[in-house]
């Protein structure tokens, strides 16, 4: 048994992806089978094994995926960002409102989404990197600011992005084009870019190394503050990206919401093997983690449970992953 496991671990593909990631993919498949069997039993008349279910899970996975990719950079530096969900909503609200109220062209609105996200990232990053504020409290404060700003700007109205036969709906093609889940392609492309940035550029190298040992990197003559802030900016910009895919899939955004997505994005990261202590990050793991979160929420709904189960489970997942990470690090010391 153990031998077989070792043999499996030494397969080339397994080695390339990392054993944990392969296990996670196994988890996805298991979850899918489980939901397919359980949902008709628990909730009569549902059939989980439908393409529409899968597509709906994918829709959820896209924006969670972008959020999780962003926060992976921040967690890699040993910090945390609790503001991404509300920041995503805030940028969707403000740019959507501008489009409706002031007739901004669509392309400008999309760019605005990313920019607003990046601005939030810059502010948060500046507080953390240059003023040395704890990132959790800073980002929680910014979360409130993002929520508030969204509702102040829109006068607490729900904002709908164009849909159906309305003009200017081409941004929805990002999510799905003639039945093809284009969102998946975008997510994979962005994930690949993220992986390249993290593993093959100076920024990524510094971000990971300063998460592992900030003082050693500083004493190597690197201005760590700049790179620490950059991680937050990347995170914010990707939250803006997530906003595009959120409205592409669901079109309407409500002010004052979005903080549950933080939790799910963070859960996706830690499940994927990114360590809350910093210095260790896996983009592939994050993407798989995001899809686990998405599938979980689809499954929970299909089985007729309320979304609250998802919230409670997310908490347990983060707790479990962090305890496991803490204990394993303690053992290796």
């Amino acid at each position: 048994m153990k031998e077989a496991l070792n043999k499996f671990k030494s397969l080339k593909l397994v080695r390339m992806m990392g054993f944990n990631r392969v296990v996670l993919i196994g988890v996805i498949i298991l979850m899918y089978i489980l939901f397919t069997i359980l949902s008709p039993i628990l909730h009569q008349g549902t059939n989980f094994a439908q393409v529409s279910r899968l597509l709906s899970a994918l829709n959820y996975g896209y924006f969670i995926g972008f959020l999780a990719l962003g926060v992976t950079f921040v967690i890699a530096t040993g910090n945390i960002d609790f503001s991404i969900g509300p920041v995503m909503f805030c940028s969707a609200l403000i740019s959507g409102y501008c489009m409706k109220q002031y007739a901004f062209p669509l392309w400008l609105c999309l760019i605005m989404c990313v920019l607003i996200g990046a601005v939030f990232g810059t502010v948060g990053g500046a507080f953390v990197a240059y003023l040395h504020l704890p990132s959790f409290i800073t980002s929680m404060a910014l979360m409130q600011v993002a929520k508030g700003l969204g509702s102040v700007f829109t006068k607490t109205q729900t904002v709908s992005w164009p849909q159906g036969d309305a003009p200017n709906t081409w941004f929805r093609n990002f999510v799905r084009y003639k039945g093809i889940p284009t969102g998946l392609i975008f997510l994979i492309v962005v994930a690949i870019i993220c992986a390249i940035v993290l593993n093959h550029t100076r920024a990524g190298r510094y971000i990971i190394c300063l998460g592992a040992n900030k003082e050693a990197v500083r004493l190597s003559g690197v201005d760590t503050r700049r790179w620490e802030m950059l991680a937050f900016i990347i995170c914010g910009a990707l939250a803006g990206f997530a906003a595009i895919f959120y409205v592409g899939a669901y079109t309407t955004v409500q002010p004052g919401m979005g903080d549950t997505f933080n939790n799910e994005a963070i859960a996706a990261c830690v499940m994927g093997g990114t360590s809350m202590a910093g210095g260790l990050a896996s983009i592939l793991g994050t993407v798989i983690g995001a899809f686990i979160v998405a599938l979980m929420q689809e499954g929970i709904l299909a089985m007729g449970f309320s979304i609250s189960y998802q919230y409670a489970l997310t908490g347990l997942i983060v707790l479990g992953a962090v305890i496991a990470d803490t204990l394993s690090r303690r053992r290796s010391n």
Binding site: I196, H200, T201, R202, R205, Y206, I208, C209, A212, N213, E215, A216, V217, L219, S220, G221, V222, G279, L280
Partner: peptide, 30 residues
């Protein structure tokens, strides 16, 4: 504490102070 990044490889540690020179365009020249 101050010299090396324990969790990273020899390569990553060796070029930590000079990474700029080992970057070609956008990417690190592995």
């Amino acid at each position: 504490r101050y010299g090396i990044v324990l969790k990273k490889s020899i390569t990553e540690n060796s070029t930590l102070a000079t990474l700029k020179e080992y970057t070609k365009g956008l990417f690190i020249d592995r």
